[in-house]
Simulated scan of single mutants.
Amino acid sequence: MSKRELLRKEQERESLKMKRRKVAYVVVGVLVLSLIVVGTALGINKSRQGPAVDTSQDAISKAIVAIPEDVYDKVGPGSAEFPTTKTGNKPDKGGKVQLFYVGGEFCPFCAMERLPLAAALSRFGTFSGLKDILSSSTEKELPNIPTITFRNYKYSSKYVDLDAYELSDREGRQIASLPEAKQQIFDTYNPKKGIPFTYWGDITTSSPSYTPWLAGGDPKNVAKALSDPHSKEAQAIVGGANLFTAEICSRTGNEPANVCTSPGVKAAAKKLR
């Protein structure tokens, strides 16, 4: 079985686990409501998400949007991959690049994808509200991956519109739901409901950096490693960011030029489909 096939099966497993957790929490909520009659015991909505797990004073959140340009150029595509699936739609022409992301904070593969995706997007605009988290501790092979969350993020860019959703928290509890139009896209182009899921219009992408060795890592060490182009973290995460950047540049007419014509992005572009 290829690495890509293995990854897809694992993503589908994560999606199934999220569904099962959601059902379990609903059952518990019904029992609590019937026994205690507390109407707000398990209220779930976007305004009551609770704090993300932060063990590093947002060291990764700060580092991922401030990777030195010379590191990008030295890494190029690094060890990252960029698997894509065609949707059958034509690429959008003109206007901003439209990106739609779906993940969950518990999901280890989402944890891996958010890092290079956020790094790449930071080259086209400005983030606020990013926070450090750890993925689920209950994954036997991939527990406690240090990463960031798109929960409560804000993103401003003249090149890209990002619409990102974290559907579940680190424990698998639902914290958000998709609008009807987004749910239709998710169901149509991702029938097995695997996460992470990133929709570009003509393609979908998932996990360009397959980095299971991040499991249980120290967030501060991961942040520090992003400044070392020879580190395995930089090779995967910065490499993935360059691949994401090259894909975005292919849709913006290579703007901004200082990003899209940089050596690291040009090297990564050769690895795209």
Rank of each mutant, 00 (worst) to 15 (best):
2 S>C: 13
12 E>R: 06
16 L>Q: 14
19 K>W: 14
19 K>R: 14
21 R>Y: 15
22 K>W: 06
25 Y>R: 02
28 V>M: 05
28 V>L: 13
30 V>G: 00
34 S>P: 05
40 T>V: 03
41 A>P: 02
44 I>Q: 05
47 S>H: 10
53 V>F: 06
64 I>F: 06
65 V>K: 13
67 I>Q: 09
69 E>A: 13
75 V>G: 07
77 P>A: 15
79 S>C: 01
79 S>K: 08
83 P>E: 03
84 T>H: 04
84 T>F: 05
88 G>A: 14
92 D>N: 11
102 V>E: 06
105 E>R: 08
106 F>M: 10
106 F>G: 01
111 A>D: 01
112 M>P: 00
117 L>D: 05
118 A>V: 10
120 A>I: 07
121 L>S: 09
123 R>F: 05
124 F>E: 01
124 F>K: 01
126 T>A: 13
128 S>L: 08
130 L>F: 03
130 L>N: 07
132 D>H: 04
137 S>M: 06
141 E>R: 12
141 E>I: 14
142 L>Q: 12
142 L>K: 12
144 N>V: 07
145 I>D: 01
146 P>C: 14
146 P>S: 15
153 Y>G: 04
155 Y>M: 01
157 S>W: 14
158 K>N: 07
159 Y>S: 06
161 D>T: 15
166 E>S: 11
173 R>Q: 11
173 R>P: 00
176 A>D: 14
181 A>H: 06
182 K>D: 14
183 Q>S: 15
187 D>Y: 00
191 P>F: 03
195 I>Q: 05
195 I>S: 03
196 P>K: 00
200 W>K: 03
201 G>S: 08
206 S>P: 11
210 Y>E: 08
215 A>Y: 03
216 G>N: 07
217 G>R: 15
217 G>T: 10
221 N>D: 13
225 A>M: 09
232 K>C: 01
234 A>D: 13
238 V>R: 05
240 G>M: 07
241 A>F: 05
242 N>L: 00
245 T>N: 13
246 A>F: 14
247 E>I: 01
248 I>Y: 06
249 C>D: 11
250 S>Q: 12
250 S>T: 13
254 N>E: 10
254 N>H: 08
255 E>R: 11
256 P>G: 02
257 A>M: 01
258 N>L: 00
260 C>S: 08
260 C>A: 08
264 G>P: 01
264 G>W: 04
